[in-house]
Nucleic acid binder design. Structure first.
Lengths: 119, 119
DNA sequence: CCGAATCCGGCTCGATACTG
DNA sequence: CAGTATCGAGCCGGATTCGG
C-alpha cells in the first residue's frame, strides 16, 4: 500500500511510464498465447520496426515481464514469453486493447464533430 | 467488429495511440470522481505542466472522452469531466493504474537483478 | 490570479540500411 | 534469423508570456 501514481516522486510512476511506452501494449498482447520468436512478433505486430521491437523487448525483460530464451542454434532461434508478472499485466492491457477496438466509431464520430465545429 | 490493433492500417491503432499518450492515464483517473477545474487537476496530478495538461485535455475533448465547460466568469472557471465514453475508458485505465501501484516491488527487484547481472 | 499560447532544447520515435 | 547503426522528424517538458 501507499503507492500513488499522482505523487511526483512515487516509484509507481516509473512503472506506469514503462507500461505506457508506445509498443508495450502490443508486445504483451502479442505474447498472450505463449512464446513467440522475434520474427513472429515482428510479423504479427504489423508495422513495428526491428529497432523498436528490440528496445521494447529489452525493457520488458529488464522489468521482469518478459523472458528471453536464446536457444543458441544456427540459424539463431530466440524466443520470448511472458513471465508470471507479465501475465498479470496481460489482463489490464487486454482490456485496454479491447476498449480501443470496441470504440473506434465513437472516437471517429467525436473527431468528425470537432472538425466540423472548427470549420 | 473486425477491428484489430495488430493490423497496420486499422483505425483502432490511432485510438490505442491516443490512450497511450503520456498523461492520458493520469487525467482520466484524476477525473474519476466527477468534474474538476484546471488548477485542481494540475495540483492533483503532481508534476504535470500546464502546457501538457492543456494538450492532453484538448485531445481528450476532441476524442469525446472529456467535456469542457467554460463558465465564462471572472476570474475564469473552467471545468472538465468525463463523458459517458470517457467513463467507459476509466475502468480499463484504473486497472492499469492499480497494476502499476501494486507491482512496484517486483519491477524494482527485476531491475536490480538485471543491473547486478551486468556488473 | 486562472487558463492558457508560444518558443525552444532534449530526447524518444521511426524509417531505412546494414551485419553476424 | 535476430538483431544494430544511422539519421531525421516529432513529441515532451521547461521557461516565458498573455488575455480576461
Amino acid at each position: 500500500m501507499g503507492y500513488n501514481v499522482m505523487a511526483r516522486t512515487c516509484p509507481s510512476r516509473v512503472v506506469l511510464h514503462r507500461i505506457g511506452a508506445r509498443w508495450t501494449v502490443f508486445v504483451v498482447n502479442a505474447l498472450e498465447h505463449g512464446p513467440k520468436r522475434f520474427v513472429e512478433l515482428k510479423t504479427h505486430i504489423q508495422g513495428i520496426t526491428p529497432k523498436v521491437l528490440t528496445e521494447t523487448l529489452r525493457t520488458l525483460e529488464r522489468d521482469g515481464l518478459v523472458l528471453r530464451t536464446d536457444h543458441e542454434e544456427n540459424p539463431p532461434r530466440v524466443e520470448y514469453e511472458l513471465t508470471e508478472l507479465g501475465r498479470s499485466l496481460l489482463e489490464p492491457l487486454r482490456a485496454v486493447r479491447r476498449w480501443a477496438e470496441a470504440h473506434v466509431p465513437e472516437i471517429e464520430a467525436a473527431n468528425a464533430a470537432a472538425a466540423a465545429r472548427e470549420s
